[in-house]
Amino acid sequence: MNAFILGNPEKCIGCKACEIACSVAHLDISVVKANEMNIPFISRLNLVRTSAATMPVQCRQCEDAPCANVCSVGAIVHKDNCNIVLEEKCIGCKECMLACPFGMLEMQPKSAQGEMEFQAGLKVESINGEQQKAYVVMQKCDLCTGRAEGPACIEVCPANAFVIVNSEFIRRNLNQKRISSAQEIAKCRYIRNS
């Protein structure tokens, strides 16, 4: 069963520390260097405020992921209980963005060592003349796979507003709910008349 990270709107204070932690965690250079190079923050989760709630949202790692099942180049694959993006395969067609019912996906410029990776063929023409275009690829929550401390957003949150929903969590959660339901029914004298 895939795992995913779920924010708790009851606890979230809307500080956006998670967004910053996410972008830092996905840098392949130091924060200092990134700052010197003036690289923008690119977070894979978004803090969303509505009149009903404030909470961060990120990829739910659906079992039958619509994003992957619409991708015509096979750039979204399943690995270690997570759906990951193979950036080198992505062609930026944006069908996945439309397919995701949660709006969790984002297109971002592709970079390595803080440098944008430019396309060989496609150029942008404008009044300023012809310019190189950076690759733009889909990026989404990868559960910080490979990061020893686990997901950066969970680690940084000052309000403890995240849970990681994996098979152990779900098993425990379902069992607890079933047990308390059974206990309530057994306790109620009138639920059964026959």
Partner: peptide
């Protein structure tokens, strides 16, 4: 239609939904 996102499993207070 289901995409296996498991939101319903978390939402159900009885634990009545499995994947």
């Amino acid at each position: 239609k289901c995409i296996g996102c498991k939101s319903c499993m978390i939402a159900c207070p009885f634990g009545a939904i499995e994947l």
